[in-house]
Structures are given as C-alpha cells and as structure tokens.
C-alpha cells in the first residue's frame, strides 16, 4: 500500500511536469513566452483579425 501511494505521488509529480513541458511546446509554437502571459487575450484578438483578413 505504501509503495502504491509513493508511486502514485511520484507519478503525479512526473505527470504534472510532463504536462507542463507539453504546454510549453504548444505555447512556444504560437510564439508566446512560457512564463509571462504577454497579453494573451489581446493576441487572440489579433489572431482573429488576421484570420478575418485572410
């Protein structure tokens, strides 16, 4: 039982880290900083405007 809980917690930590790395690569693809939310909502609007123009 102890082993299971230990493994579970470790898995959660590792999973979280894996998720973060995934998120970073996704964010980077869109040209966003991993840490600072450099005006994401505004950027969404710009993207929308860009799509409308195309």
């Amino acid at each position: 039982m102890t082993l299971f809980i230990n493994l579970l917690i470790a898995a959660i930590i590792v999973g979280l880290a894996g998720y973060e790395i995934f998120k970073i690569t996704q964010k980077s693809k869109q040209g966003k900083c991993a840490g600072c939310d450099y005006k994401c909502e505004a950027k969404l609007m710009v993207d929308k405007a860009r799509k409308q123009r195309n």
Binding site: I21, I24, A34
Partner: peptide, 23 residues
C-alpha cells in the same frame, strides 16, 4: 510585471525541467 514571469516560470517550466533532469 517583469519579475512575475520569473516567479511563474518557477512553477511551470523550471519545475518541469527539474523533474525531467531528475528522471
């Protein structure tokens, strides 16, 4: 404004990188 990115990164990318290197 400028520093909060750093603090935030500690919880995301730095954490992730650390776990990765530990693994």
């Amino acid at each position: 404004d400028k520093s909060k990115g750093f603090v935030k990164k500690a919880g995301t990318v730095i954490f992730a990188g650390t776990v990765l290197i530990w693994l």
